[in-house]
């Protein structure tokens, strides 16, 4: 769709990761085009979350490289070797990526507004007034303007997650990672969070990688679906094809188990 003519915004080559003796990711190759909405589905332990965490530099790959807009992420060249990247250079690349977590991870000692403002002020150097205005705007977008001065413990799970999304957005990332953001929520709160993400997909051009168990949502929001199992990407296609006509037997089996509960 023209993505081949442009550089992928995110590129994984031969990325592997294991924990002790368990191999979680096996030589993953993946190109993500700018603006794509990718849903990552698959059974537990398939490596979906690990993949996200590697992109967010929360973990380091054992093998392989990750590039963001052509630049190495988490690594830099030292002569002919690749060494761990740190400091300002790491952050210059990493700053293009944001993440929303399953357990929200809001800062408990700050209000909702402060949670959203802190990064822009202290990491990006924005003035307090600008950051405040932007933060209030984002809070309105997620429908929580009136909770600006509430602390996380005073908010429901769904509200906390919406604040977390606003907080991630405040840093204006080019790539947003969503790690099972509704899995820790009571069922009746899931909808409000998914609505926000849906609106995000419709209104912005941010590249999104969404690990989720909500198949209906994945089908609706994504323009590309990856099915992972055993540390490999088993199926890669558009939602219609993957959900309606999966090519792989394992995809069929997984969907069969998940969709007909």
């Amino acid at each position: 769709m023209g993505a081949e003519s442009r550089q992928p915004i995110l590129s994984l080559r031969g990325v592997s990761k294991s924990y002790g003796s368990v191999q979680i990711l096996r030589e993953i190759d993946l190109d993500v085009g700018a603006g794509q909405r990718i849903a990552l589905i698959g059974p537990s332990g398939s490596g979906k979350t690990t993949l996200l965490r590697l992109v967010m530099t929360l973990e380091t790959p054992e093998a392989g490289t990750i590039e963001v807009e052509g630049e190495l992420l988490g690594l830099r060249r030292a002569g002919d070797r690749l060494v761990k990247d740190r400091g300002a250079h790491l952050r210059s690349v990493r700053g293009k990526i944001g993440m929303v977590f399953q357990h929200f991870n809001l800062f408990p000692h700050m209000t909702a507004l402060q949670n959203i403002m802190d990064g822009p002020v202290h990491v990006r150097g924005l003035s307090k007034e600008k950051a405040r205005a932007h933060a209030l705007d984002l809070l309105s977008k997620v429908g929580l303007r009136q909770k600006a001065d509430s602390y996380p413990r005073q908010l429901s799970g769904g509200q906390q997650q919406r604040v977390a999304i606003a907080r991630a957005l405040a840093m204006e990332p080019k790539i947003l990672l969503f790690d099972e953001i509704t899995s820790a929520l009571d069922p009746e709160l899931v909808g409000e969070v998914l609505t926000i993400v849906r609106n995000l997909a419709n209104e912005t051009g941010t590249t999104m990688l969404i690990v989720t168990h909500e198949m209906g949502f994945a089908r609706e929001v994504a323009d590309r679906v990856l099915f992972m199992e055993g540390g490999r990407i088993v199926e890669d296609g558009d939602p219609e094809q993957v959900f309606a006509n999966p090519r792989s037997e394992r995809t069929k089996a997984f969907l069969g188990a998940v969709l007909h509960r």
Binding site: M56, L58, R94, G95, G98, F101, D118, G119
Partner: peptide, 23 residues
Amino acid sequence: VPRGQHEAAVALNYSPALAMRRI
């Protein structure tokens, strides 16, 4: 301090020193 707090700081691109100081 829960690991999630450190991870949120990374996700928001805090430097280690800034994360310690503010979070």
